[in-house]
Amino acid sequence: MSTQDDPAAAFVRELEHWRRHRGLSKKDLARRTGFHPSYVSHIESRRHHPTAEFARRAEVALESGNRIWQRYVAYAERRAQGGRLPFRDLAAAPPPIGSHLVIEDEQVTLSLVDGWYELHVRRVLHSLGTLPITRCTVRIDIDRFPDDQDRSLAFHSRHPLTLDEVDFRATIGDGEPEPLTWRVMHRRDAFIELVLLFTSNGVSLPLYPGERTVINYAYRVPKWKFGNWLQRDIRLPTSRLLVRLNFPATTRLTVWGSETSFTAENCADVRQHRPERDEVLAYEWEIPRPRLRAQYRLNWRYADETR
């Protein structure tokens, strides 16, 4: 097994990343977690196996957004499958203190309709930790010329995104969803970040520990502003990602995908199929366990475009 696929190595990489990101030495982390400095050193050098208690305390100390804890769970599950760790140890491990959110399933659909790119996202959210979730953030991020930064900056300064044109909408719940309250957090010419507040018509709808809910949101951007790419950045632990493109069959697209992480860049196969409507072609890319902090990107080229 390669170290890239080894859950123990992935746990150590996550731990080291967040320790350095927080500006802590091994001694600092040991002091915050209540472990001896030599134990932290042994964990990072993989001379000792991580334990649930250490992972829980490290998550609390480093506030990784549950990433460290999820790496430990993946590691513990692998050991349990191999018969090297009793399964009851997993159930006995308490969740990290605080509010932590996991995306169990994310489905992203981008359609080209009458000169507009219309994007719809469906997320199944699971609340972990000990505190309720009351909000989450989403981003609208476009780049007309991603390979020419100066040209793109000049273009978007002349043609900035506006809230009116994106027509953002969001709902919470499955079956009979309710409209979500939202507000703008940050805004630039080609970028809008919004926070979705778990309230609807003045009523609070917190996601309590252990509960799940469904979030849907949608927006649109004129085709001439968007660029020929769609990227998902994995900022929260995600169990499954599915990206779809729905384009008129007359566009005759060439589509390819790529995965970029801190350690590698890989190409991906994108499946093409013809849905029920003959005038539309669909392209699908499914990623069963996307990597944290990795980027998954679809690019396309129209038949009438030059390379």
Rank of each mutant, 00 (worst) to 15 (best):
S2P: 14
D6Y: 07
A9P: 04
V12D: 00
W18A: 00
R19M: 00
H21P: 08
H21S: 11
R22D: 02
K26A: 14
K27M: 13
K27Q: 14
K27I: 11
L29H: 07
R31G: 11
R31F: 14
T33R: 03
G34Q: 05
Y39H: 08
Y39A: 00
I43R: 10
I43V: 09
R46T: 04
R47G: 07
H49E: 13
A55R: 02
R57A: 12
S64W: 02
N66V: 05
R67K: 15
I68A: 01
W69C: 03
R71S: 14
R71D: 10
Y72H: 08
Y75S: 05
A76F: 07
G82A: 15
G83C: 04
L85H: 08
R88H: 11
R88L: 11
D89Y: 10
A93W: 07
A93L: 06
P96G: 02
S99I: 00
V102Q: 12
I103G: 10
E104L: 10
D105C: 08
D105H: 15
Q107C: 12
V108L: 06
V108S: 00
T109H: 01
T109F: 04
V113T: 11
D114G: 04
W116V: 11
Y117A: 05
L119W: 00
H120Y: 07
R123N: 14
L125W: 11
I133S: 07
R135N: 13
R135M: 12
C136S: 08
V138T: 09
R139Q: 13
I142E: 03
I142H: 02
R144D: 02
R144T: 03
F145H: 11
R151V: 04
S152V: 04
L153K: 12
F155Q: 07
H156N: 07
R158D: 13
H159L: 12
P160W: 04
T162V: 08
T162Y: 08
D164L: 08
T171D: 09
G173M: 06
D174T: 15
G175S: 03
E176H: 13
T181P: 05
R183V: 15
H186A: 11
R187W: 02
D189K: 13
A190V: 06
F191S: 06
I192K: 03
E193N: 09
V195N: 04
L197V: 14
T199S: 12
S200N: 05
G202R: 03
V203Y: 07
V203I: 11
L205P: 02
L207R: 08
Y208T: 07
P209H: 01
P209W: 03
T213R: 01
I215V: 15
A218Q: 06
A218D: 06
V221N: 02
K223Y: 09
F226W: 13
N228L: 06
Q231I: 09
S239T: 00
L242N: 06
V243Q: 01
V243E: 06
R244K: 09
L245M: 06
F247V: 05
F247M: 09
A249C: 10
R252P: 03
R252F: 02
L253C: 00
S258K: 06
F262D: 13
F262V: 12
F262N: 12
T263R: 11
E265R: 15
A268S: 12
A268I: 14
D269F: 10
V270M: 04
R277T: 13
V280A: 01
P290E: 08
R291N: 11
N299L: 15
W300Y: 02
W300T: 05
Y302K: 08
A303N: 12
E305T: 05
R307D: 10
R307A: 11
